[in-house]
Simulated assay, not measured.
Amino acid sequence: MRALIIGGGPAGLATALALRNGGMAATVYERRAAPDPVGTALTLWPNAMSALRLLGVADEVAAVAQPCDGTQIRRWDGVLLSRTPGAELVARYGWPGVTLYRADLIGVLRAALPADAVRWATTLVDHRVGVTDVTADFADGSRESASLLVGADGIRSPVRARLLDRSGDLRPCGYVVFRGIADLSTEGAPGLMVMGRGAQFGAFPLPAGRTYWFASLPDALAAQVPEASLAWLRRYYRAWCDPVPRLIAATPPDWVVRTPISDRAPLRRWHDDRVVLVGDAAHPSAPTLGQGTCQAIEDAVVLGECLRGGGPLPPALARFTSLRRGRVAGVTRQAHWMGVLGRWRNPVACALRDGITTHLPRRLQDLQLDQMFTFRAGRISRPSRR
């Protein structure tokens, strides 16, 4: 059996690795001519690190990432609302949260695959499902056939649009996120979320003395911001608690990316007999929980388990979506409502939100962490990939 995987990001590469570890040939097709040299950063939480362990690359990812010492939530003026120590995360789940460049994660996943497993500058233009195979046509005139087509091609997935006959069901979330890399060390610090009235700010330590940060602003306010304007952000966040102003001040202008946020309401079906979706192509969520890439890696591992050993594809793909649907729907809904709470501007409503965050019983906090950060999908072996 062979799989064609459309999309060379973390979802596609992790899926290729999972399928190959399970004995299926898999080739990734990526429309870009080469991977981004740096790009933005991302967080991987314990559930993702557990999934990467099953793929056999957790240690390699940890080597290019920076752990954070747990998490903290603070009010805009610095008042501590909630904290989870890093040692507690390690004791409960085996890993802390880690932060790394997206390009470094892609580099680790690519290095675990054979050199010919990824084909660059190859854009899918159409696919057709037959009785015994699926055929993909590419913009360069080439054509490939295989047992399975995997859409790992992101939030605006062409594979999804063809599979579900819909492409316009993105749901605007009502806010914009600015992502930046500050040339300033916060090594040893916790992952930080700072909550204001209608705005939020987050920061996570990166390797080599840098820090990944993001600033969330509602659409109405973001409309006043010139494209990726650091000067405007410096003025807006100047009275917020440390290290928020210092991080924005230490960020070069070309290290900031502006992204309007959208998600999709959870779906019940991500597949047909020979086509399946993973990652953002299947279940794009708001970034408020930092779980987008984490859930894509989980998808890869579970799909690999469902397809291990061959057998008929339709029941294997149905089992995959059945196993994953409830979990990712819960994450998507929670991330969406976290974004709604983050946009609250009424002082009374914000005080209520902050009070609930502070006084949430520890038992409920632990339950939330367990639901988010626990991942098990059986044992995946590590056969030779070369």
Rank of each mutant, 00 (worst) to 15 (best):
R119G: 02
I73K: 06
A351Y: 05
M195E: 11
R75P: 00
Q371A: 14
E187N: 11
S285H: 09
V131K: 09
G198P: 06
L55Q: 04
R274G: 05
G130A: 14
P243V: 03
M24W: 15
H283M: 07
G174E: 05
Q291Y: 06
L54W: 02
P347V: 10
T288Y: 15
S262R: 01
V340N: 08
V108W: 09
G174Q: 05
R75Y: 07
T374V: 10
L80N: 01
R386V: 14
R83T: 13
V340W: 12
V159E: 10
A318Q: 14
G94A: 09
W213H: 04
D116F: 10
L352V: 15
G39M: 04
G191M: 03
Y93M: 05
R166F: 05
W120H: 09
A281H: 04
V225I: 06
L247M: 03
A25D: 15
F214H: 08
G209C: 09
I155N: 03
P315V: 12
P287N: 03
L307F: 06
R31H: 12
A208D: 15
L313A: 09
A215I: 00
Y29T: 00
R197H: 12
A14E: 03
T84Y: 04
A3N: 07
H127A: 10
A136M: 07
I261M: 15
E144A: 15
V340T: 13
G198M: 06
A329Y: 01
V79Q: 15
L323N: 07
D36R: 14
E187W: 03
R382N: 13
G292F: 08
L170T: 08
L206F: 02
D126A: 15
I261F: 05
